[in-house]
Amino acid sequence: MVADRIGWLKAEPRGIYLPGADAWVDPSQPVARAIVTHGHSDHARGGHGMVWATAETLAITAARYGPQPGGMRLAYGEKVEIEGVGVSLHPAGHVLGSAQVRLERDGAVVVVSGDYKRAHDPTCAPFEVVPCDVFITEATFGLPVFVHPPAGAEIARALARLRASEGRCLLIGAYALGKAQRVIALLREGGWERPIYLHGAVEKLCALYQAHGVELGELRPVAGVKADALVGEVVIAPPSALQDRWSRRLPDPITAMASGWMMVRARARQRGVELPLVISDHAGWDELTRTLLEVRPREVWVTHGRDDALVHWCGLHQMKARALHLVGREDEDE
């Protein structure tokens, strides 16, 4: 039993806990010692005593919650020891600065992957396969219906629709941290060279990405721009703004939403979007199963999402797996 050798790690409903070090991975409440995988608010919260994370994640947390004391900056691959547990961070490919946490003690290795994806993303370091005994994974898209198409093709589809629509603009709803910047970078890769217009809620994080060397091209705030001037342009806004009065200022927008959930028609219709774009920052079914086959851990623990299907798949492939049912992980806006 692997679990016998890793009594130094516990899976609690509130997160992954290291009793010896009194440290938590992505705790849902303020704690004395936290190791944080990435900057999304369901993983990174303010008010911890000490926080081990990448420089980018610490910067994102500071931008969202104000300056936080106790930040312990870790580069990818750099090792530290916290009360006998060897800790290092490795790229997860989810958003800027996102990391998997590698934990080692008594010859056993546990990797807490956080949120991750394997698909192309010009705005962050690609996922790294880290060999381990126990691989702790999410399963947001843990159903075989979620095989996300290449994001570039979705962007091309959106641009084609914009070019074929006279007098309209393209309004893309995208989560403010990560998705918005990835969509912008993919638009640039897709040949869109015009300025891209931003809702106020995504400006700050775009600036943070640019300050970390991510090329996003020319960005302009929507505020103060006349409707006529936005015809034929691309506007990025958080999903909540799509149906909001805010969007009335835009010239007959083609309402698009970039999310892995857009794969399922009913989910897309719930959002009231005209153009669903299947662009996900979480691993789809093919990426999850490919990762498990490449990492080949002795055990798979599934934190949240559609865990029953992934646990069942592990059984079919002679992998030991169990669901942890962690609380407080959100997957609504993905």
């Binding site: 159903l143 399922v264 028609r265 069942h312 798949w313």
Partner: peptide, 23 residues
């Protein structure tokens, strides 16, 4: 498709044609 994975997918998607189209 494995029947359990089909059933879980169908439960989630809620429409037979769409589930089959995706799987």
């Amino acid at each position: 498709v494995d029947p359990v994975l089909f059933r879980l997918s169908y439960d989630y998607v809620g429409d037979l044609a769409e589930t089959v189209a995706l799987l």
